[in-house]
Design a protein around this nucleic acid. Structure first.
Lengths: 120, 120
DNA sequence: ATTACTGTAATAGTACAATAATACAGTTAG
DNA sequence: CTAACTGTATTATTGTACTATTACAGTAAT
């Protein structure tokens, strides 16, 4: 895992996104053990509390679970993670389009710009 | 002006974007007087200090200017505003695409999703 | 059992954006 | 001139995200 974080945005949701994408993408298998809170904090260069918070929120959503003293593990059902990634993609696209429209961009211009950026 | 603000994001840049888009879109003509700091704060439901900060930052970029005691006015050259809107659109598109790629989306999927959201 | 890991919790401190409340000075219309 | 508007500046307070540090208890390997 790369832990490529943007320092200018909240770290907690970024961590969550990296992990959920890893699960949905199959890099983390169901039931697999994750890195420890302290290890992630070390590798990502952030505070353990922030990692703990990210893990706890993902646990609340049923995507991972913890065994106290033992570690964090990927949930048996990875469906939640796949679903979450899809929702994220959809939400982000909607926000992007509405943001571009606020800039007075026509749909055709939006599509053209996305295409252009993709092909670079 | 609508002052449609998202309370979950920093207000200052949102105000700047609304104004710069208004200038670039021609709703505010070159040299035209803008609403006062206090009036914008009232209409938008935010603190005057935040409006003052937004105006000052736009002044630093040469898009508007102030005459102390008189008010704020659109700069004679609106090119800066047009340019800024283009940069915003471009940057936002790049961030969107790279964000979607982080979710393991192929270019074709990205384009398909944008198209779908546009046609709704 | 000891050791070294794990999760978990609590507290304090930092940084930032925004708010709140004033105050002061320049401009302009009456 | 005066009154009512302007921009501008200052100080204090709130809320939030993150950091820093420490502590405690569960787990597992030796």
């Amino acid at each position: 895992m790369e832990w490529k974080l943007d320092k200018d945005r909240p770290i907690c949701p970024q961590l969550m996104e990296l992990i959920v994408t890893g699960i949905a993408g199959g890099e983390y298998a169901a039931g697999e053990k994750l890195l420890s809170v302290r290890e992630v904090a070390l590798q990502a260069g952030v505070n353990p509390n922030t990692v703990q918070k990210a893990f706890s929120e993902m646990e609340r959503d049923g995507m991972i679970f913890s065994r106290a003293g033992s570690g964090w593990f990927v949930a048996e059902d990875t469906g939640k993670a796949v679903e979450r990634v899809e929702t994220l993609a959809r939400t982000r696209t909607e926000e992007y389009v509405s943001g571009m429209r606020a800039l007075r961009k026509e749909d055709a211009d939006i599509l053209r710009m996305v295409e252009e950026v993709c092909h670079e």
